[in-house]
């Protein structure tokens, strides 16, 4: 028997907002709107985490995505033929296949979610301060190796991305550094 609490209401509301903004990303032709729609989709997810009483991850999500998606916005404006969306350019292909794939993917996962018996749902979350503390202990204890690996991976990706993005001086001798 389903119990509709205020928490459920907020989780569902922010979830719907996240999906709505996610759809808006591909329905507008203005790149700035598209990028900020993605930002607000991610922010709604962060708020949803907060509604689920997962405070640290929620705040982290809200914080990280603001900068990340803003940086995305400038790249979209740089690389798009029609960043303002005033020319009504067609920017999609294989539309029918994509919609089909999206719908099938959603239905498949939703079916798994619906027909699996997840067992008893735990109603109470640990208090927020406890969560932050325990996550810290986990990070520097059992999961330290994974955490370190993530750090090294970030470093590698930073170097790799910079190396790819730098102009090749041999190919273009007239390039001014």
């Amino acid at each position: 028997m389903a119990v509709i609490t205020l928490q459920t209401f907020f989780i569902a509301g922010f979830g719907l907002a996240a999906i709505g903004f996610g759809v808006a990303v591909f329905r507008t032709s203005s790149m700035m709107r598209s990028a900020l729609a993605l930002l607000f989709s991610q922010t709604a997810l962060g708020a949803m985490f907060l509604a689920m009483q997962v405070e640290f991850l929620g705040v982290l999500q809200i914080m990280m995505m603001a900068t990340e998606m803003s940086i995305m916005a400038i790249f979209m404006v740089m690389f798009m033929m029609d960043p303002g969306g005033l020319g009504a350019m067609e920017m999609t292909h294989q539309k029918r296949l994509s919609i089909l794939a999206g719908v099938v993917g959603t239905l498949f996962i939703a079916g798994i979610a619906l027909f699996t018996s997840w067992g008893a749902v735990i109603a109470t979350a640990p208090p927020a301060a406890q969560q932050t503390h325990d996550l810290g202990i986990e990070l520097l204890g059992r999961s330290m190796l994974i955490f370190e690996t993530a750090g090294v991976t970030i470093l590698t990706a930073m170097i790799a991305a910079t190396a790819i993005a730098l102009p090749s001086l041999q190919r273009n001798p007239h390039h001014e550094p």
Binding site: F56, V59, M63
Partner: peptide, 14 residues
């Protein structure tokens, strides 16, 4: 908030 010092960063990002 239990994550106050982090939350202020999140707010300033906006």
């Amino acid at each position: 908030m239990a994550t106050g010092a982090l939350f202020i960063n999140a707010a300033l990002a906006y």
